[in-house]
Design a protein around this nucleic acid. Structure first.
Length: 193
DNA sequence: GAGAAGATCTCCT
DNA sequence: GGAGATCTTCTCA
């Protein structure tokens, strides 16, 4: 498998977000692999995006968004859930892409066991769900995704053509004029509301 | 050191 | 369709 390298991530956040659709997220857990195809993402920028963690400047929590692209940025939200982001940026403006939904590809039995859910369509269709299924926690924050270790992204073997739909982002109260949520048209594994 | 809000999910009606 | 669960982070004193 071809792991995405640094040059993929060090581009405009919006461009990276769109191109992440259809890529594979690989989670290596001891000897077991879990693989999911990315079907839904959201882009978060910096000083021009009031919904972004980076909007109010650099802090102890969001400093990863100000660093290089291609790193995992994981944070805990609502007392219950982790959200998994990939840093993606060009120049000095911070940026990250939130992975919102996956299509289960491999290691499905392990995924089901991690959440005690059998319905595939209800397994990874939300940011909090997919982190639980993939066993992604705050420990993975700051991980280099280009090294091919516990967690990385790669190019699928057979590239499929699909249409990209862009809509308003979900769950944010500011920046709703930006259509920075992207998903694969017709895919049944996206989250909705 | 206290208070409030948050890039969500699940259960209940 | 709506509210509760639950804790980290940020802001202000």
């Amino acid at each position: 498998m071809e792991i995405l390298d640094r040059t993929f991530y060090e581009r405009e956040t919006i461009t990276v977000a769109k191109e992440l659709l259809g890529k594979l997220l690989v989670r290596r857990n001891n000897k077991d692999n879990m693989i999911g195809k990315i079907v839904e993402v959201e882009a978060y920028s910096g000083s021009d995006d009031p919904a972004s963690h980076a909007y109010h400047g650099r802090t102890d929590r969001n400093y990863l968004m100000f660093g290089h692209g291609g790193y995992a940025y994981v944070y805990f939200i609502y007392g219950n859930h982790y959200c998994f982001n990939v840093t993606a940026k060009v120049g000095n403006n911070p940026g990250a892409v939130l992975i919102r939904a996956l299509e289960p590809i491999d290691g499905i039995e392990l995924m089901q066991a991690n959440r005690h859910v059998k319905d595939l369509k209800n397994l990874t269709n939300g940011p909090g769900k997919l982190t639980k299924v993939m066993n992604i926690t705050i420990k993975h924050s700051g991980l280099d995704l280009t090294k091919g270790e516990d967690l990385f992204l790669c190019e699928p073997k057979d590239k499929q053509r699909f249409e990209i739909v862009s809509t308003k982002r979900i769950g944010v109260k500011s920046g709703i004029d930006k259509l920075w949520r992207f998903y694969i048209k017709g895919n049944t594994f996206i989250s909705r509301r």
